[in-house]
Amino acid sequence: MSAISRRMHLVLLAAWTILWFAVVQPHGGFSWHYLRTGGELLYAGSGRADGGLNLYAHHPELQMGPVSFLAAGLFNPFPEPVGQFLAAGVMSLIGLIILVVVGRSAAWHFLGTGTNHRRLRQRVLIAGLAFIPMWIEVAVRFGHLDDVLALFFTALAVRALTRGNAAATGIFLALAMDSKPTALAFLPLLLALPRRQWLRAGLWCAGLVALVWLPFLLHAPQSFAAAEFTIPNQPASALRWLGVDDSRTPPWDRPAQAAVGLALGCVAVRRGRWPAVALLGANARIALDPASTRTTPPPSCWAPCCGT
């Protein structure tokens, strides 16, 4: 089989991505201003009273991780429309890369089982056709760089996991949490490594999370208040159906999302079903989220990370 035909599914997925990008981009970037502002403040450092390590203490509404703001700041030298366009393009490309990483992870995971690679590529194509429109919705229409990076690093962590690389698994999971704190729910993936590698992976992960977050918390202890930031409890939220009629996020909600996600992930690993960890973390988020599924990245967006 020629190299071209082996890559045909990627050509089709790239064309599909470009099509959706062209349709959505003119009306996109709904939340990009949060990233742009955060990037400006972070790179401003001590030059601004609310910049640098004071970011979260003064702007609890900026609910993205430092890595997301560091990445977003790379687009700030450009005029705002240009920077937003470039960021949307890069985020769209990351979606394609995730599909490639997921395909390779699946192939590696099933190594030695007689997997039909042609059929696996067909599945990547079909999954990608469903995944790309929702990815473009999150990445381009909303401009949620934090979700994009968290999923990208989680996909890389899964890739490292399937290859048995403990340090890389820990590092990528840490980067996911450094991009978006809710990626904490994916932490049980570490437990899918052989027990002898837990310590190594855990130390890398904990070290990198501490390296990124501790400076903010130590320099400006008020940064903890960012965890108490609330958003409206929308009528279409699953939380309403669980009997929570508060007008805004209840104080127990975010810790509960993390706890339930972690618990479900641990159960999945315990039962030998670690590929379900990402989906279960996303499910815990959606079930207990005050936002509707329209503004929360849906399971279809997170599913490729557990596609193996």
């Binding site: 190594l111 030695g112 048995g164 590698q197 315990r270 670690w274």
Partner: peptide, 30 residues
């Protein structure tokens, strides 16, 4: 369980030493 031919540690955890080296090239076709 399609991976039973692979050497797994307990609970289906990922093995650090994949059993089949010959198929690795196929894993890069994605």
């Amino acid at each position: 369980d399609r991976r039973r031919r692979r050497s797994l540690s307990r609970g289906g955890r990922v093995s650090a030493s994949p059993a089949n080296v010959a198929g690795r090239e196929s894993c890069e076709k994605y």
